[in-house]
Design a protein around this nucleic acid. Structure first.
Lengths: 337, 337
DNA sequence: ACTTGGCACTCGGGAGTGCTGAGTGCCAGG
DNA sequence: CCTGGCACTCAGCACTCCCGAGTGCCAAGT
């Protein structure tokens, strides 16, 4: 149905349009790529491609531009992920290696990705629900309140204030802390719910109200409200690709944690780069953007996601290469700490 | 030199220009404000104001718009901070009261400020150097590494990885932890440097290398690299005020922590709202923006800054009111935890 | 059966033109 | 010192015109 030449034409259209941001016509096409046919032939091919919905004309007497469907075909069959050069890889490695804590790793990753791709970068913190607890700390505050600090094996630190219902002293806190650490240390956060159910039996009866308050805060931290933490960077790159009107919508969408989570998607295979083009991410206001994302993690399973957001008119091979590389190196760095 | 009517004219020009975003002419001025003189008279006044540099004409045969100098005069002498309505104050209070930890307070504050002013909001985390230590925790990681966790009285939690030069066991860590907490608890972070100098004497000789490593990381955390943490929100509001070309520059500037710090400025009086107009903040790329900022804090001295960034053509009285109110309530909330 | 050159057609966008209306500065009279 | 009147300026809009890029189609060539 689409012979090789037609595919080559589509590929050429995508490449040219991405690099020039102008509708590409039949003449320009034969000139720039060495197709050994005449413009007229190309026109026939383009007519077919348009009929099938891979390209469109913005207006009569203009060249063609790819549709979402066209980009999709391009990404799936007509392009290969462009690997990073050795120099780039070294730069990535040294830049990330300088990080000194989790916040810093995430911040550097976001910057790096934004700079490499010249797009907006989005990085999710290592998912709480997939981490294990490494340490639990209780710090007394004033007025019957405690600060609960959870430290995970990915270096993430979560803090919450707990209102204690009953009175307590240093000893009771020490005891509680010991119980918590004994029971929770090394546990996956998803397993904690089950463990916590058994905990009350391990503390003295008179401590139970306080203990219960702490437990419920732990559960609350893990599940409901505290979804996931996400960082965005390189927003200024949006001004290059002229969304003109849509810019506001895009910026608004990027400020919504929830939207970002949806955007990064769900795939569970580590280091697989996924691409969502235009309307494929059904987020209002991001219909004209594409997302290139990948999971990253320290072991076999992905801990979280990262990716870039840009106009559908995006250099997919390069973006995919950058996302893949950054995901790998960030995963490595996390594994080392 | 500038009589009352001329000042009134300037005020009217600023107000009209802010609300309409169009150069304001002499006729429109007498129509909308009830000045009891003719347009011709106003024209004479405007000629004087222009000569003095308070207003300019974008082009001949257009109305006048205020200059930075004009806005400055307006802010200093022609306007009053517009207080929030009771309803707004209640809304602010309840919105902030729902926060459950420091991160959440800061995030909510940023959102609130962006929403109230319809500008970009900037909030700095409570300054480390002005906080006191409430607790120090050491958590063993793998391979001779420790996670150092500092908890401050403002609820801020800082974490750093420490490479331990010598071997250690649980006991030595417990001892070190005790020493640290005994010596640092309640100390201002600015005083820590002095205290740390004495610490080595308090640990056993064979523990000193490890202790020294921890101490140096503490110092490092407080001073050099870890300046201050800043959160930005409401960037999409920038699209409303048409910077057109400058938008990219503004977005870039807002991604630079260092620039933001400079922007929020240095004033030490709490709850004083400061305004920097246009070129007054000598940051490249933000020459056409204004910053309205205030300190906020739990006690008498400000812990940190917050504010809004917008076009010089900004509703200063309202922005100042919102910034002042939010600074107060955020301070209160922090004081309670 | 595909490819190709030729040709008529379309139409966005830039350049040129004229008009209108808002706004000004100046001046002479109140 | 204020005011009405008047001449002047000029951005912006509407209108026209034209060019060039690009297309679709067709008939002829391989």
């Amino acid at each position: 149905m689409l012979d090789d030449r037609k595919l080559a034409v589509l590929r050429a259209i995508v490449e040219d349009y991405v690099s020039t941001n102008e509708p590409v016509g039949s003449r320009a096409l034969v000139d720039r790529h060495n197709l050994d046919v005449s413009p007229a032939t190309i026109r026939n091919d383009m007519a077919v491609l348009e009929e099938q919905g891979y390209i469109v004309q913005p207006h009569t007497s203009a060249g063609r531009i790819p549709t979402d469907k066209g980009y999709r075909l391009f990404v799936d069959r007509l392009s290969a992920v462009k690997p990073m050069s050795a120099a780039e890889r070294r730069a990535i490695e040294t830049f990330l290696a300088g990080a000194y804590d989790l916040d810093d790793v995430v911040m550097r990753t976001v910057r790096l990705l934004a700079q490499l791709t010249r797009q907006v970068a989005v990085v999710q913190y290592p998912s709480l629900s997939k981490s294990a607890i490494r340490h639990v700390e209780l710090v007394p505050l004033t007025d019957g309140r405690l600060l609960l600090v959870l430290i995970t094996d990915t270096g993430r630190v979560e803090q919450r204030v707990v209102d204690m219902p009953a009175s307590y002293d240093d000893d009771s806190i020490t005891q509680l802390r010991a119980v918590l650490n004994a029971c929770l240390d090394g546990r996956k956060l998803t397993d904690v719910a089950a463990v916590v159910a058994d905990l009350p039996e391990r503390v003295e009866p008179r401590e139970r109200p306080n203990a219960a308050a702490v437990f419920s805060v732990i559960l609350e931290t893990l599940v409901a409200r505290h979804e996931e933490k996400i960082v965005v960077g390189g927003a200024s790159n949006l001004t290059a690709a002229d969304f003109s009107q849509g810019l506001r919508e895009v910026l608004e969408a990027l400020e919504e944690q929830v939207v970002l989570m949806r955007l990064l998607g769900e795939s569970d295979e580590i280091s697989a780069v996924t691409v969502r083009i235009g309307a494929e991410n059904d987020v209002r206001g991001l219909r004209s953007t594409s997302v290139v994302a990948a999971g990253y993690g320290s072991g076999d399973r992905p801990l979280a996601k990262l990716g870039v957001v840009g106009p559908t008119r995006m250099d997919y091979p390069t973006a995919m290469g950058a996302v893949r590389a950054v995901a790998r190196y960030t995963g490595q760095i996390l594994a080392e700490s």
